[in-house]
Design a protein around this nucleic acid. Structure first.
Lengths: 142, 142
DNA sequence: GGTTGACCTTCCCATGATGGGAAGCTTTAG
DNA sequence: CTAAAGCTTCCCATCATGGGAAGGTCAACC
């Protein structure tokens, strides 16, 4: 199988397959006499695995660790779970950060009437010297 | 005020201030005879604004638009609100994407006993040819 | 046999926001 | 006067992905 065929079969682009090889995530494949990369079914499986891990947001470095564990029949599932839990925490942290942004911005936007007049609580909020915060916005006192 | 002082006053690093100038987000500042950038109170305000917008996750290009609107007293608040709403949608999309990842991974991890044995639903899930999905995992049939 | 088009190779560049660090000049404090 | 701190520009790195160029290869069709 040439690289285009594995790419189609695995859902990982040829460009990325070459890249993963270059950074050492994947081992170097066999080559045809003309220098074309040659792949087999097993490589399709591996790339599927990589794609799924990527779809879950794992960074490539951790995908490499997951691949190693996957191929190591002497692994303990605790090692895998540990990686997964760490990534879950990372995802949670990112979600919370984005949610805080969204809530703050939503509060500002809610107070903006969005008409032809220039007065705008959104701009006022951005210009305010204090930290933006998803606070009440009515009764800012106390 | 030199760049270090505005950086400290605004919370935007000197490195970033130079970068924002280079990409045109900020106009070029005055320079001292020695070539040092010179800033005033007004620049501190502007950088505060930029920092707050950045803290809400706005991309720099949109921050530029917000800055223009802020400085345009003939603006309509509708224009600002439109930018904000678009960014809210972007934030929501990202949050949903991350939440889907988290839910799928959490489901896989929940089924992994995390002990010394090699059997691991997380790896099985990643290796599965089907799309990963936050499905039931018990009774995968039907 | 020759041509064409699809496919492969490597290499360089770009994204977006941020930072590290080098080499060299300026200002300030002791 | 000297040393430290601050400034300048320029290059490189991140992370994952892709675009595109220049050139070689393979298969199919006439």
């Amino acid at each position: 199988m040439n690289i285009g065929a594995v790419a189609a079969a695995s859902g990982v682009s040829a460009k990325m397959i070459r890249h993963y090889e270059k950074i050492g995530l994947l081992g170097a494949s066999a080559r045809s006499t003309a220098g074309y990369r040659q792949y087999g079914e097993r490589d399709v499986q591996t790339l599927h695995f990589v794609r799924h891990a990527r779809d879950l947001g794992f960074p490539l470095e951790q995908i490499g660790q997951l691949l190693s564990l996957w191929q190591d029949t002497g692994r303990s599932s605790a090692e895998v779970k540990c990686l997964a839990e760490a990534h879950l925490q990372d995802l949670d942290a990112r979600i919370h950060k984005l949610s805080a942004m969204r809530d703050t911005l939503a509060t500002l936007a809610r107070n903006c009437c969005g008409d032809e007049r220039p007065d705008c609580p959104i701009l006022d909020g951005l210009a305010a010297s204090a930290q933006l915060d998803d606070g009440p916005k009515r009764e800012p006192s106390r």
